[in-house]
Simulated assay, not measured.
Amino acid sequence: MATVNPQITDSVTQSNVQVVGSAPATAIATLSQVTSHAVSLALQNAVSQQQALNIIGNATVAAAVQQILAVGGRS
Rank of each mutant, 00 (worst) to 15 (best):
M1L: 06
M1F: 06
A2W: 09
A2M: 07
T3I: 09
T3A: 06
V4Q: 01
N5G: 00
N5M: 01
N5T: 06
P6Y: 01
P6A: 04
Q7C: 02
Q7K: 04
I8A: 00
I8D: 00
T9R: 01
T9N: 02
S11K: 03
V12K: 01
Q14N: 11
S15P: 00
S15D: 08
N16W: 06
V17Y: 01
Q18W: 10
Q18S: 11
Q18T: 12
Q18M: 07
Q18V: 04
V19H: 08
V19G: 03
V20A: 10
V20S: 05
V20N: 08
G21V: 03
S22F: 02
A23E: 03
A23D: 02
A23P: 00
A25F: 00
T26E: 12
A27R: 07
I28F: 09
I28M: 04
I28K: 11
A29N: 01
T30A: 13
L31C: 10
L31S: 14
L31R: 10
S32R: 14
S32I: 11
S32N: 14
Q33I: 09
Q33A: 14
T35K: 04
T35D: 03
S36W: 04
S36T: 15
H37L: 08
H37D: 12
A38V: 15
A38M: 07
A38H: 11
V39L: 03
L41T: 09
A42G: 10
A42E: 08
A42I: 08
L43M: 15
Q44C: 09
Q44P: 09
Q44V: 07
N45R: 15
A46D: 14
S48V: 10
Q50V: 08
Q51W: 05
I55G: 07
I55C: 04
I56Y: 13
G57K: 13
N58Q: 12
N58L: 05
A59R: 11
A59F: 08
T60Y: 11
V61I: 08
A62L: 08
A63L: 08
A63S: 07
A63F: 08
A64H: 14
A64M: 06
A64L: 09
V65Q: 12
V65C: 05
Q66C: 12
Q66S: 13
Q66I: 07
Q67H: 05
I68E: 01
I68T: 06
L69C: 06
V71A: 10
V71T: 05
V71R: 07
V71K: 11
G72T: 07
G72Q: 10
G73R: 12
S75M: 09
